[in-house]
């Protein structure tokens, strides 16, 4: 798995490439938390366009980051969720608390409209 983080204003963009499972989820968790703190970000956008597999460990990572971000007054968005990934997202009910976008620009635009 390969993770690229980029800061855009107060939003941290986390682009994941590869497979997210229990083994790789620790790295995703640690890197996201570290970058979020370092960049003093408020919001997080996860870009899933490069994710080829994800099990419930990925859901656990997003749920955990959601708690941190909410307590910081921010929001979380998810970008480019494939048909395969959508199934586990639907099952988890995560779409009730995070919004899904087609691309990063539309996520950032929506965050800005929502005053984030």
């Amino acid at each position: 798995m390969n993770i690229l983080c980029e800061s855009r204003g107060r939003t941290l963009i986390v682009k994941v490439n590869g497979e997210i499972d229990h083994y790789s989820s620790n790295e995703l968790k640690n890197k996201t938390d570290r970058e979020y703190k370092q960049a003093k970000s408020k919001n997080i956008v996860f870009d899933f366009s490069g994710v080829t597999f994800m099990d419930s460990s990925g859901i656990g990572v997003i749920m955990g980051r959601y708690k941190n971000v909410i307590s910081n007054g921010g929001v979380i968005g998810a970008v480019s969720i494939s048909k395969e990934l959508r199934k586990i997202f639907d099952l988890s009910g995560l779409f009730k608390i995070i919004k899904c976008y087609e691309n990063i620009e539309s996520a950032l635009k929506d965050f800005s409209v929502r005053g984030q």
């Binding site: 419930s56 859901i59 656990g60 586990i88 099952l91």
Partner: peptide, 13 residues
């Protein structure tokens, strides 16, 4: 451990 608790739900579904 930041687990979602969805493992068996996923297997069942």
């Amino acid at each position: 451990l930041g687990r979602s608790g969805l493992g068996f739900t996923v297997m069942e579904s």
